[in-house]
Design a protein around this nucleic acid. Structure first.
Lengths: 136, 136
DNA sequence: GTAGATGCAAAGTATTTGCGACAAG
DNA sequence: CTTGTCGCAAATACTTTGCATCTAC
């Protein structure tokens, strides 16, 4: 089982305010990949006084603290998701926008190999697949 | 040898204006991945009357026509490069911003396989590796 | 008590668009 | 000719920031 966002904040020395607690809870409950507007709407239902500036500041802080991952899929706004130990990449349905998470260890290994081939240590990577559903 | 951008425009029925011709030439000569501002500066040296709006309109048009590729690397502005038949992905040096192009057929194949596993035809993909140079 | 967080509105970036003038086919 | 493009400035979309106030620790 992975730590809660609140535990991660403590561990990283991030001050836990009421607003951050709410944003953390909303992200934890979200199984999709909301953008800032969507997150702001969800958060506003719990505490309507939270400002969008705080949401922006918080997602940025959480991203820098390794608590959230930011994705910038083709042609859309930045989206966020909670970062748990299980790394995964994304397959995006270009027709519906549906996002499927997947893991492929072999691709991961090959990526590291490519980086090494050029004399680099891989510190991060981004893999996004865009597809259309097969009709049979 | 691959077609020139002008030939591609003809083939796709894209009207060839003086401005587009200049933007096409500048992109063809560029071996890096300029963002719109940078491209605008380069283009302005040839014809100072071209407006940034035209540059934006043109890169968008060229992208939709499959003439240019748009990249949105982590935390930076959109960058463009000419699209030739040889597909490649990018390895970005997170310290210097240097961009290395690479090809890995095996990764390509695995991507297709992953998409198929979920019942999708792969129409596009994005793979970016972020690394730091090894110190020995 | 104090450093850091918040809300608000204003300011930044990056990009798009309405419109009248103009150019390509 | 006619349709689409250009330049300009204004508009939009997303995100950041200055500042006075407030809150976690």
């Amino acid at each position: 089982m992975s730590e809660t966002i609140e535990q991660k904040c403590l561990a990283k020395g991030v001050k836990l305010t009421e607003q951050r607690r709410i944003i953390a809870q909303v992200m934890s409950k979200s199984n999709d990949h909301p953008d800032v507007d969507e997150l702001y709407m969800r958060v506003s239902k719990i505490d309507p006084k939270i400002s969008i500036a705080t949401v922006y500041r918080t997602v940025k802080l959480f991203e820098e603290s390794g608590i959230l991952a930011k994705h910038e899929f083709k042609g859309s706004k930045a989206r966020y998701e909670e970062l748990n130990e299980g790394h995964h990449d994304h397959l995006i349905d270009v027709k519906t926008g549906e996002i499927i998470e997947f893991v492929d260890d072999e691709i991961e290994k090959l990526q590291k190999k490519v980086a090494e081939k050029y004399g680099y240590d891989l510190v991060d990577h981004k893999l996004e697949l865009y597809g259309v559903k097969k009709n049979k």
